[in-house]
Design a protein around this nucleic acid. Structure first.
Lengths: 183, 183
DNA sequence: TATTGTTATACTCTATAACTATA
DNA sequence: TATAGTTATAGAGTATAACAATA
């Protein structure tokens, strides 16, 4: 009767037992965030992602749709629909970049500024609610760690993706720097 | 020109600037996890979630589909399809609970034990890859914080969901439109 | 030729509703 | 009546491919 993977210890954590990998925790927390933030931003086209795009439109530095899409992890076609909705709602405008007329920069309207300010406040409340169970110190620690990881994940060339990771692992079991390479 | 939300400081973090809410970081990290773990578990039906179900089936304590679905955040109908695939692959079996024949417990076959052991190892490699940018101490800290949050989120009655959160926020937070009744 | 952005299409994933069998 | 599980269906979300405009 083989029992290849007995739990390492008699630790209590019952929830951790069955789905106890990092992916489970990440998924639960991420879904909880999407749920609460979507509820709080129900009147904003695109929900949480609509807010992210609107936030980018409010920023001083304009940005093309494509770079925005890459940064936010949204497909460029989805970005088109998302901006369509935001534009229909009078929150943002598309403006062709004179330097390169292929690029369009997204800028927020006055109404967009107001809506963004209000929704941002609500979003902060939702985040507080989500991080409520943690000590204040731990909340900042979690934010910091997540941003470190996210920045790093974004810094890696998004084009070089899973294939590289797989072959890294298959190679010697210890994936090191992804480096640039054809996949 | 109202500029309601100027950045708090001249900090560098350019990626943090535009999508710089917690949701952005969570999304990036979560997608990176799903991407790498899916690639590593490409031969396992259901990918990362298939692994979670298989892990539950390997556990000593059996569990009904419905409680498993709730714990993993999967719809019960999706759980049916997921188990269908795992069963077709010969990894798990459905067994009617004699005490209550409505419930079916999912148990892993011998083959399921072997596959689970192997995929678990690969998943750990993928996690190491994901958490690579962090200091060893920080990796454990992040895991701990995420599990705290996830356990808490799961502990809250899953039925009481967004409406509760919305009214919570409306109660002590910004006085915005309270939830428009039950929808 | 390559890239941005759009459109149309197809696909995947998920949720809703109706049904059964058990309790 | 209520719950666990299944099935069929519809829906939301996403990705793929072709295209026009611009470089």
């Amino acid at each position: 009767m083989p029992r290849p993977g007995e739990r390492t210890g008699p630790g209590p954590a019952p929830a951790r037992a069955a789905g106890g990998d990092l992916g489970w925790a990440l998924g639960v927390v991420f879904r909880a965030y999407v749920k609460s933030s979507s509820a709080v931003l129900h009147d904003l086209p695109g929900g949480p992602r609509g807010h992210q795009v609107l936030a980018a439109a409010v920023e001083a530095t304009p940005e093309s749709q494509i770079s925005l899409a890459r940064r936010l992890g949204i497909d460029k076609t989805v970005m088109t629909y998302l901006i369509d909705d935001l534009e229909r709602a009078g929150l943002v405008e598309r403006r062709a970049n004179p330097d390169d007329r292929r690029h369009k920069t997204i800028v927020a309207t006055d109404h967009g500024h107001q809506v963004w300010s209000a929704t941002r406040d609500r979003l902060e409340q939702a985040e507080k609610h989500l991080l409520g169970p943690l000590q204040p110190t731990d909340r900042e620690a979690l934010r910091s760690l997540l941003f470190q990881l996210a920045d790093q994940a974004q810094a890696v060339d998004p084009v070089v993706d899973t294939c590289q990771i797989v072959s890294d692992i298959a190679a010697d079991g210890q994936p090191h720097e992804p480096a640039d390479g054809p996949h």
